[in-house]
Design a protein around this nucleic acid. Structure first.
Lengths: 204, 204
DNA sequence: ATACATACCGACTGACCGGTCGGTATGCAG
DNA sequence: CTGCATACCGACCGGTCAGTCGGTATGTAT
């Protein structure tokens, strides 16, 4: 009953899904078009019917994911509230993402350097628009409102993202517990308050 | 006049040096043994006379560098003084490293995943002993002395290393100026004090 | 001088991989 | 029913690359 369009669309989706799984598990060079085709239950011919090249498939897969992520993070950035609340919401959304999707954000940064020209530029832009720029929005507001010390907002955003990345991975999982909240608090406390022991402060 | 031993040693050194330059500039898969041999002014045959495989060459090159780095960072960690001073010294040493050697520290983390088994384990261990464990020593002391808030020291160390990595790269260079000190202060301030605006505190 | 080891050469091989192409199957439009 | 487009197949090609191997040159020990 499904027409050709639907058929093609589901095949494309199968290929993209298989590519995503494989690219997360292995490096770009290690994943062969043959492997992707086999995992998607088509042949290489079928794969190349829908995608011009291995690179085009990778880029297509990644751009789709980055678009979705951007929508998700834009919601958090658009929230009302303190910078800490908004960063918390965004980070929580990120940490609660399925592991595979979260890994894709690391993947872009890892793989961007193996491309060049147009594809590379599009990937970089899409990544920055998906995550770092959303963080930067919040940080910039935080500086304007006196919540965050006046520093270069982009540098601060990257620092924040770097701290979040530390908290992914099994060691942090083991230390901070299974729930998202532990990791979240750890990141926010460290980012806003630093690692120094609390000085005794004058209390009201 | 030099005997065969010296001759072989210098050839090996040439090969390792060429490999280092190339692996920093391009990814593992993109660097061919032919390119390394050519850059080292030997043939592939000559290269394979000294190294059993491409992987063995990579590992050998990396372990040599990590050993040197470890010695350097151990000095800083062995210093007297506050945790902040010692971390500052270690970070300064790191930031003042020639760009190529500094890049190698990123390389390990990037490339570790393409190996497996024994080679992988040795690389991971050597890296951790070279940098993160040196940081962890200092952090642990800082916690013991009440300078750093009691948190998991390993997690804190990784966070610190992540913050340092942000500060390498051209954007940070442009924002924080050419000198090492600007980047150094930025990292230390952020790590110890956090990003929050200073609250007005009771002063003596 | 002779014999042996070590350094090095470079043509070659075998495997792999991205991409192609001629062909078949399946629907849809007139 | 016919003709055309689209989806898909799978054998194949061109090229690349890690690794090999028979050979030569250069020292070194006896």
């Amino acid at each position: 009953m499904p027409g050709q369009d639907t058929r093609a669309a589901t095949t494309v989706a199968r290929i993209v899904g298989a590519a995503r799984r494989l690219f997360v598990a292995k490096s770009y060079a290690e994943v062969t078009t043959e492997m992707i085709a086999r995992a998607a239950d088509v042949t290489k011919g079928g794969l190349y019917h829908h995608f011009a090249s291995k690179e085009a498939l990778y880029v297509s897969m990644m751009l789709e994911h980055l678009g979705d992520s951007r929508s998700l993070f834009e919601e958090a950035a658009a929230m009302e509230g303190s910078a800490r609340d908004r960063l918390g919401r965004l980070t929580r959304d990120f940490l609660d993402l399925p592991a595979e999707e979260r890994e894709l954000m690391r993947l872009v940064r890892r793989d961007v350097n193996i491309f060049s020209g147009d594809d590379r530029d599009r990937l970089v832009r899409a990544y920055q628009e998906a995550l770092p720029q959303r963080v930067e929005e919040i940080v910039t507001d935080g500086i304007r409102d006196g919540e965050i010390a006046p520093t270069d907002p982009r540098l601060l955003s990257w620092s924040f993202v770097a701290l979040v990345e530390v908290v992914i991975g099994e060691y942090a999982h083991a230390v901070l517990g299974e729930s998202t909240s532990g990791r979240l608090d750890h990141v926010l406390d460290l980012f806003f308050g630093g690692a120094a022991a609390q000085r005794v402060e004058a209390m009201a």
